[in-house]
Simulated assay, not measured.
Amino acid sequence: MDERWRADLALWGIPDEIAARARTDPWGHSPARFAERTERALAEAEGPTLRRIAEALPRGGSVLDVGAGTGAASLPLAASLGELVAVDTSDGMLAELESRAAELGVPVRVVRGRWPDVAAVTPAADVVVSAHVVYNVPDLAALLAELSGHARRRVVLELTERHPMSWLNPLWAHFHGLVRPERPTVHDVIAVAEALGHQVRHEARLAPLTRFATLEELAESACRRLCLDRERAGEVVAAAVALDMWPLPRDRWFTLWWDSERESR
Rank of each mutant, 00 (worst) to 15 (best):
Thr214His: 09
Arg265Val: 10
Thr122Val: 13
Ala219Tyr: 12
Asp229Ser: 13
Gly13Gln: 06
Glu103His: 12
Val128Glu: 02
Ala131Tyr: 02
Ser30Leu: 05
Asp229Thr: 05
His163Asp: 05
Leu147Ala: 10
Trp167Phe: 05
Ser166Leu: 06
Val106Leu: 05
Arg225Pro: 04
Ser221Leu: 13
Phe212Pro: 05
Asp16Gln: 15
Leu144Cys: 07
Ala207Asp: 00
Arg33Tyr: 12
Leu104Tyr: 08
Leu209Asp: 14
Glu17Pro: 08
Glu36Tyr: 09
Leu11Cys: 08
Arg250Val: 14
Gly92Ala: 11
Ser30Ala: 06
Val121Pro: 04
Pro116Ala: 09
Val87Phe: 01
Asp244Ala: 06
Ala7Ile: 10
Val129Ile: 14
Thr38Phe: 06
Glu36Phe: 08
Val237Phe: 08
Arg100Gly: 00
Arg211Cys: 12
Val186His: 09
Ala233Val: 02
Leu75Arg: 00
Glu261Leu: 12
Gly61Pro: 04
Ala213Val: 12
Ile190Pro: 01
Glu217Met: 08
Arg52Gly: 04
Pro164Arg: 03
Ala102Gln: 12
Trp258Leu: 10
Arg114Tyr: 11
Asp188Ile: 06
Leu171Gly: 05
Val155Ile: 02
Leu256Ile: 06
Arg152Pro: 04
Leu81Pro: 05
Val111Pro: 00
Arg262Ala: 10
Leu171Val: 07
Ser90Ile: 07
Ala238Trp: 07
Leu104Met: 10
His202Pro: 14
Ile53His: 01
Glu46Ser: 15
Ser264Leu: 12
Ala54Asp: 01
Leu248Phe: 12
Pro184Thr: 11
Val137Asp: 00
Ala43Pro: 09
Ala120Glu: 15
Glu161Trp: 06
Val128Tyr: 10
Gly47Trp: 01
Leu157Ile: 08
Ala141Trp: 08
His202Tyr: 14
Ser99Asn: 08
Arg232Lys: 11
Glu96His: 08
Glu261Pro: 06
Ala32Met: 13
Ala86Glu: 03
Val134Cys: 12
Pro208Asn: 10
Phe175Trp: 04
Trp258Val: 03
His202Trp: 14
Glu182Phe: 10
Ala131Gln: 04
His163Asn: 03
Pro107Leu: 05
Pro184Trp: 03
Pro138Trp: 02
Glu83Ile: 03
Ser90Leu: 15
Trp27Tyr: 13
Arg153Cys: 06
Leu104Pro: 04
Ala207Gln: 00
Ala204Phe: 06
Leu226Gly: 03
Ala145Ile: 02
Ala101Gln: 01
Glu96Tyr: 04
Tyr135Lys: 01
Leu84Gln: 00
Ser99Cys: 13
Arg162Pro: 07
Thr24Trp: 02
Ile14Ala: 02
Leu64His: 04
Asp251Met: 07
Ala68Leu: 08
Asp91Ser: 15
Ile18Lys: 06
Val63Glu: 05
Leu157Pro: 00
Glu220Gln: 11
Pro123Ala: 04
Arg205Met: 15
Gly71Asp: 00
Gly71Met: 00
Val129Ala: 09
Ala238Lys: 09
Leu144Ser: 08
Leu196Trp: 03
Ile18Glu: 02
Ser221Gly: 07
Gly61Met: 04
Ser30Arg: 04
Gly113Leu: 13
His163Ala: 03
Arg265Tyr: 07
Val186Ala: 14
Ser221Asn: 15
Asp8Arg: 12
